[in-house]
Nucleic acid binder design. Structure first.
Lengths: 152, 152
DNA sequence: GGTGAAATCTACCTAGG
DNA sequence: CCTAGGTAGATTTCACC
């Protein structure tokens, strides 16, 4: 899809604050409100913008513990991967999961209310899975840079 | 802050789609549009909702390579940490950074256009920093579970 | 790039527990 | 007294010019 410098700037603005009016966007982009709105529609229709989400403060809603868990699989059979994917999909505390190169097979991002809940998740959900060989939890002590916009 | 079951459900809905009207929210919550809107305002004012962001499709905007980089520091002096924080803040390809327990000191989330750009970032930005001892890049082969809503 | 109709938000007001 | 629902003015979006 064709995307010029103005579109990049627009995406950057909308990642920071999606509730700006077309008029406000137009001022930043040096564009008329109608053109700014039209460009936004174009980016939505093209799928570059897949949706809009509220940013929720994890601490404020009682999710005080954040962790990254590296998962090593015992077997790499296709059905082992599939059943693990189902487990991941069914566990709400896992907010993201990636298939990685290198050392570990998967990396899971976790949000829990407390350390006890994190330990329960590891001991009673992850480790009991038949194809999980080993997990390595790393707790987030602080967020040095908050989840930010994509570099455009 | 006081948060009941309805507020949790509202946060869940707004994380999935922030552009729903108060009427649509009210239907899901079995509430009148005015009450749904009022609750949303309350959650914003209380800081539970810190803002709204457009979800941008990384692949679609040409950011085809995603990676997680574990950073091991040579020194743990306060000013080493501070200058590293400045480096992280100034690097747009680093979209998130966490201070971790365990093995590595920091975990960085990276978005790049290609592998060459990722290698440049490691070789020319991260490793030259005086207090960085070692980095370990792990490339994301696939996203098993997309960045999802917090478990409420 | 501008304009007007339609939809939506929000502040205020009223009713009920 | 606090929480829920309804109504009207003001803003914003979107299709058309």
């Amino acid at each position: 899809m064709a995307m010029d410098k103005t579109d990049s700037a627009l995406l950057r603005l909308l990642q920071q604050d999606a509730n700006q009016t077309a008029e406000s966007l137009g001022q930043h982009l040096r564009l008329s409100p109608s053109q700014a709105g039209r460009r936004r529609q174009r980016l939505e229709a093209a799928g570059l913008i897949s949706g809009y989400a509220a940013r929720v403060d994890a601490e404020a809603v009682g999710l005080g513990v954040q962790a990254m868990i590296q998962v090593h699989m015992a077997a790499h059979a296709p059905d082992a991967a599939q059943s693990f994917a189902a487990l991941v999909a069914a566990t709400p505390e896992i907010t993201s999961a990636w298939v990685m190169t290198g050392d570990a097979d998967y990396l899971l991002r976790i949000f829990c209310t407390d350390l006890a809940a994190l330990n329960r998740l590891v001991q009673e959900v992850l480790l009991p899975h038949s194809s999980v060989a080993r997990v390595q939890s790393q707790i987030v002590m602080a967020q040095l840079k908050p989840d930010g916009p994509l570099p455009l």
